[in-house]
Nucleic acid binder design. Structure first.
Lengths: 198, 198
DNA sequence: AAAATTTCTTAACCTAGTTCATTCTGAAAA
DNA sequence: TTTTCAGAATGAACTAGGTTAAGAAATTTT
């Protein structure tokens, strides 16, 4: 429960003074979360920005038919929130759930706003964080509209190597936008082509 | 060639003082662009943030086979840039091209940086702009991984009503991620189902 | 206003990916 | 050690969407 990881994370984007770090960390809350526990459910307002210190969360949408689509995996060192719901304080249509027992830091909107007001440097930190997230998402859109399922899977393997052998295949399929059955086929093909040494 | 539109655009996110507006506008450059003219080509570094005052641009990717995929339409009142290339000053893999004769405001990275440094309020403006863009893009990802081609088209009609009867169908198809032939089918189906009054 | 080019439509055929049903596997309970 | 249960694999039948090609319509250019 120390701040090391989260400070390292935000310092990536901008040098921060002691005072800034102290102010920010004093506003954080630490939470342990059980597997399957929800941090956000459709209909709620997203009240916190969440930083994952350990474990893995997912941000997902659930269709009328009960079909789930994963918008974001959030393993260690990732931020997750429904940004629209958080800033506008409107009900979300998404869910955030722990896929593993996890530990997170959270900051509420009032506390984050206070941080922005008293230490404007954080506007820049969060601007740059948004830019990175945007660029990543844009690459994903390009894949989604242009690539085959196999290409999308290979891109996933490249982008989230730490998750490939950690998440059930059904979750990965739900992130890529294909059925688990088809992902199974793809994987078989790939391993057949590569040839598994005895 | 006055600043009305662009000032209105950025003021949406935050109240700006006279001084801030003056500083910012003094850094802007106005350009008229012919149809088909490129503002950015793969291999170049994206040197400007571009605001569209009139006309319409597109940000797109061109695959090896020559197939184009549109990441963003930028009609009046939109901003467009390859954000990654712009901030990192690395070569882009994207193109920005005018789909119509257009008129734009541009700001270079040095000028935008100067703006951030002397008037930190602009960090907030651009953070909020990024957030909006991110939210929109996240909705698009959800559609891309979950919806049928018809649903994607109907969402496009809802999101860009001003473009539906203004852009060639082939561009719309390239944004949605389907072939123009199939979009033709979808449109026929829709108009048949709706029944066109004599 | 003719020529040239781009865009749209249609239709026959093709395939990547889905659906559904069944079996298999392995880890956790008990 | 057996039972349970979620996840993974397999395969057959199906369908959304792609491909190709050719002609018709619309726009741009001259």
């Amino acid at each position: 429960m120390n701040h090391e990881q989260i400070i390292k994370n935000i310092s990536r984007w901008m040098a921060l003074s002691e005072a800034e770090i102290d102010f920010f960390t004093s506003r954080l809350t630490y939470r342990k979360i059980r597997r399957r526990q929800y941090l956000l459910q459709a209909g709620d307002v997203c009240r916190h920005y969440t930083f994952v210190n350990e474990g893995c969360l997912r941000l997902f949408h659930m269709g009328v038919n009960g079909v789930e689509h994963i918008l974001q995996f959030a393993p260690e060192d990732y931020w997750v929130a429904d940004i629209g719901s958080f800033y506008e304080e409107v009900p979300t249509s998404l869910h955030i759930e722990a896929l593993e027992p996890s530990e997170v830091w959270q900051i509420s909107k009032p506390d984050l706003t206070a941080t922005f007001v008293t230490h404007p440097g954080f506007d820049r930190v969060f601007r740059v964080m948004m830019e990175r997230a945007f660029i990543k998402l844009q690459k994903r859109v390009l894949l989604d509209i242009s690539a085959t399922a196999e290409e999308k899977y290979l891109a996933f393997v490249e982008n989230y190597p730490q998750l490939v052998n950690r998440m059930p295949q059904t979750q990965i399929a739900s992130f890529i936008g294909i059925t688990p059955e088809f992902l199974s086929k793809i994987r078989k093909n790939l391993s057949r082509r590569k040839g598994l040494p005895s």
